[in-house]
Structures are given as structure tokens and as C-alpha cells.
């Protein structure tokens, strides 16, 4: 049997916990099951495509297998927008809602396949945090602030809470916060570390899943995927599933470590959970947005509502 190379394209920092843990586990599983016959070739840092380009690059086959921010596919698949709805979900219940039969991985994959791609794995890097120069605990604290919002859904959220959403590229968040160009930034929790945001803003809050889920996906070009030898495809799919689970575990561990690290750097970090008095206020303030979920398909809303309201 011939050698198979899985070309894997990522963007952003190659040291992101999601990339490192996924890639490590994937390579290990393939080595174990195919003994070096199936290998991964990693194209990091947007060498083949940036995050925003993936919705074209994967369906057209320029990228065969790539790391994606699922939310950035709203322009192609409307339903992915449902993942940004504010819910009371935790990372654990989110993982369940993703994997269960009729869960959102299955629902979304069906839609990905209609557009020439397939969604093979989903990992939640956790809800985005809000880093700010002024302490934010309750939703009212967002009123009147200029807040960097990286996506459509999060801009809606900022508006809903009375702030003004600002579009600022990831690389400029540090400077913008440092000089007060903006008062706060919605940014991935890991981003606080990679951009050293703790140097320029005193406060951070992770308001549960009220800032939506941080769903990253691993998607392949459908034609390439189906063109693989069925045996090989099975081996690779199994390895991807292992990598998905390993990466999820690594992320949860990493987040706990990061929170400690930010606090040591002098940041005031709030991790909102259901035991806190403000939890209800966040839920109430964001419920109108969740109600807007009626515009997404019933299939995608079912697992979200099940996991989001249950606990």
C-alpha cells in the first residue's frame, strides 16, 4: 500500500494549544495504526490560507484539511451562527451536545457536505473572554464601552448589552487597549496570553457561554476525503477522533493554568458560573438574542437548547 500524506493547514500562532494538542495526538495515532505509512504535513501560520479564507479554500480543494473557526463559516452555512448564541452551556455539556446523535457536529457536517466540505472534528477552545480597562462583572457594566468584537454574533451581543462594537484586527488589540482606542475587547481566552493582553488591561471576565462557544473545527475537502482509500480513511477518521478528544482535554487543562497565570500577572480575572449572583442577570440580558435563534434551523437549535438550558 502506498504512502499517504495528510496536508493540514492552520493559521495564527503555530503554538496554539488546540493545534499543538490535536496535531500531536493525530500524528501519534497514525504512527501507531499505520506505522509511518500515513503521515501529516503541517502548513502553519496561514501559509496556505488564513482563517477567513478557509470557507473558500476548503470547498475548492486548495486546502485539503484545515483548522477552522466554525463561526467564520456563517457566510457559507448560516446555521453555524447558532453557536454564537448566548447560552448557559459549559465546555463539558457543549462537548456532549456536539457528539451526541443529532448533535451539532452531525447537523453541521450534513450542511458542510452540501458545500463540498466535511466537518470531521469539533473542539471548543472555550467561550471568549472580555478583557477591559474597567471592571465588568454584570452585563450592565458593558454599557457605553467601545468593545472590540471579532464576529457578527459577538457584535450583536455587545450592542445588546449597550456597548459599541468595534472591528479591530487581532494583532492590533494590544495597542488599542493600551492606548484606550477601545475600552474592552472580546478575545479568545488564549489570546490574552499570546497577545500579552494582561500587560495592558487590568480586568478580564469569561462570562460563561454568554459570549457564545469558541468552537474550532477540523474540516476537509469532501472530494479529497472521499477519494481516500476506504481503509485509510477509516484509520485517519479514528486518529482524528482521538486527536479531538485529546485536544479537548488539553484545552480544559490549559484554561485553568492560564487563569492562574493571568492572575499572577496582576490581572483581575472573573470566571462567571451559575453560583454567582450576576449569572441570572447575564441570562436575562442575553435571552433576547437567544430568542433570535428562531431564525436558525430546528435541527441545530435542538442540541443547543438541550445542553444550554438543562444545567
Amino acid at each position: 500500500q502506498g504512502k499517504v500524506v495528510v496536508p493540514f493547514a492552520t493559521w495564527g500562532s503555530p503554538t496554539h494549544v488546540n493545534i499543538v494538542s490535536f496535531l500531536g495526538a493525530l500524528e501519534a495515532a497514525l504512527q501507531r495504526d499505520a506505522g509511518g505509512r500515513i503521515t501529516v504535513r503541517h502548513y502553519p501560520a496561514g501559509q496556505l490560507a488564513q482563517d477567513v479564507d478557509m470557507p473558500i479554500a476548503i470547498p475548492t480543494g486548495k486546502v485539503k484539511f484545515g483548522w477552522i473557526t466554525v463561526l467564520n463559516w456563517t457566510g457559507l452555512i448560516r446555521d453555524v451562527g447558532a453557536l454564537s448564541l448566548p447560552t448557559a452551556m459549559t465546555m463539558e455539556s457543549g462537548a456532549q451536545a456536539s457528539d451526541m446523535p443529532g448533535g451539532f457536529k452531525e447537523v453541521l457536517d450534513k450542511q458542510f457536505r452540501e458545500r463540498g466540505a466535511t466537518l470531521l472534528a469539533m473542539t471548543d477552545i472555550g467561550s471568549p473572554a472580555i478583557a477591559s480597562s474597567k471592571k465588568i462583572v454584570g452585563p450592565d457594566d458593558m454599557k457605553g464601552l467601545r468593545v472590540r468584537a471579532p464576529s457578527e454574533g459577538l457584535a450583536e451581543l455587545v450592542k445588546q448589552l449597550g456597548g459599541a462594537p468595534v472591528a479591530i484586527p487581532f494583532g492590533e488589540v494590544y495597542t488599542a487597549l493600551q492606548h484606550g482606542t477601545i475600552d474592552a475587547a472580546v478575545i479568545g481566552f488564549q489570546g490574552i496570553q499570546s497577545q500579552r493582553v494582561y500587560e495592558v488591561s487590568k480586568f478580564a471576565i469569561v462570562p460563561g457561554s454568554f459570549t457564545g462557544m469558541g468552537m474550532q473545527g477540523f474540516a476537509a475537502n469532501l472530494q479529497w476525503w472521499m477519494g481516500l482509500n476506504p481503509k485509510d480513511r477509516e484509520i485517519i477518521a479514528k486518529a482524528i477522533r482521538e486527536a479531538e478528544l485529546a485536544s479537548r482535554a488539553a484545552i480544559i487543562k490549559d484554561r485553568a493554568g492560564l487563569a492562574d497565570q493571568y492572575r499572577q500577572e496582576g490581572m483581575d480575572v472573573t470566571m462567571l458560573d451559575s453560583s454567582m449572583p450576576q449569572f441570572a442577570a447575564w441570562k436575562q440580558a442575553t435571552d433576547p438574542l437567544l430568542a433570535k435563534g428562531a431564525t436558525f434551523s430546528k435541527e441545530i437549535m435542538a442540541p443547543i437548547l438541550a445542553a444550554g438550558n438543562g444545567k
Binding site: 496536508p7 490560507a49 488564513q50 479564507d53 473558500i56 479554500a57 475548492t60 480543494g61 486548495k62 484586527p169 494583532g171
Partner: peptide, 22 residues
């Protein structure tokens, strides 16, 4: 020989590059 659509890929590369806000 890894790509079935080299012209489309070239077009996409150029589109991606020129659309970069930075």
C-alpha cells in the same frame, strides 16, 4: 500534480492576498 484545479487555486491565492486588510 497535487491540485486538480491549479487555475482556480491561483485565482484564490491572489484573491486572498489582495483582500488582506493589513
Amino acid at each position: 500534480g497535487e491540485s486538480d484545479t491549479p487555475l482556480l487555486n491561483l485565482a484564490l491565492t491572489i484573491y486572498q492576498t489582495l483582500g488582506n486588510f493589513l
